[in-house]
Amino acid sequence: MLVKFHSNVAGELFMFAPVARALLDILGKRADARGVITAEQLRPAIERLQQAVAAGGERPLPAGDGATRTPDDAPAPSVSLAQRAFPLIDLMQRTLREDGFILWQAPQDF
């Protein structure tokens, strides 16, 4: 399942639900089908993700799409928290500069 993060001023970002859930957990947000990171919550949210990356940014997060193998049947490479968090941090920073907010939406709670 895909989760769409939409900034009212900076574009959209799509993530697989397990990845989105892991990042929202760090932010202290519930993985509901719809949610918001308000303008007031952006700065602390960015700081929380950056602190999590600094504390353990190399630890892998779930692949998210259910794929555990590459086409040649070799194990898929792990993707770190830092790599998974970067696009969301970037979206939040761009949104913060414009005093915007971010909504997320999925077909159901995840």
Rank of each mutant, 00 (worst) to 15 (best):
M1N: 10
L2T: 12
V3M: 04
V3P: 00
K4T: 15
F5N: 02
F5K: 01
H6W: 09
H6M: 10
S7Q: 04
N8R: 02
A10M: 01
G11R: 07
E12Q: 11
E12V: 08
L13Y: 02
F14S: 13
F14N: 13
F14L: 15
M15G: 01
F16Q: 14
F16N: 14
A17L: 08
P18Y: 03
V19A: 02
V19I: 14
R21F: 08
A22G: 07
A22Q: 11
L23W: 02
L24Q: 06
L24C: 06
I26D: 03
I26E: 05
I26K: 05
L27F: 02
L27P: 02
G28I: 02
K29A: 14
R30G: 03
A31T: 14
A31N: 14
A33I: 05
A33E: 13
V36N: 11
A39G: 09
E40G: 11
E40C: 04
Q41P: 02
L42H: 02
R43T: 09
A45F: 04
I46E: 02
I46F: 07
E47L: 15
E47G: 13
L49H: 08
L49F: 08
A52S: 12
V53Y: 03
V53T: 03
A54W: 09
A54L: 10
A55E: 15
G56V: 09
G56R: 13
G56T: 08
E58A: 13
E58V: 07
R59N: 12
R59M: 10
P60Y: 09
G64M: 05
D65S: 15
G66R: 11
G66D: 12
G66E: 08
G66V: 05
A67D: 14
A67Y: 12
R69G: 01
R69Y: 09
R69V: 09
R69N: 03
P71F: 10
D72F: 09
A74L: 15
A74M: 15
A74T: 15
P75R: 08
P75D: 07
P75T: 07
A76S: 11
A76T: 12
A76R: 15
S78K: 14
S78C: 06
L81T: 08
L81P: 09
Q83H: 02
R84D: 10
A85N: 04
F86V: 12
L88Y: 01
I89A: 00
D90H: 05
L91V: 00
L91W: 00
L91N: 00
Q93N: 04
R94S: 10
R94Q: 15
R94V: 05
T95E: 00
L96F: 08
L96S: 13
R97T: 13
E98I: 04
E98Q: 14
D99G: 06
G100M: 03
G100I: 03
L103R: 09
L103G: 01
L103P: 01
W104D: 07
A106S: 13
P107S: 12
P107D: 13
Q108E: 15
Q108Y: 14
Q108S: 15
F110Y: 11
F110L: 13
F110N: 05
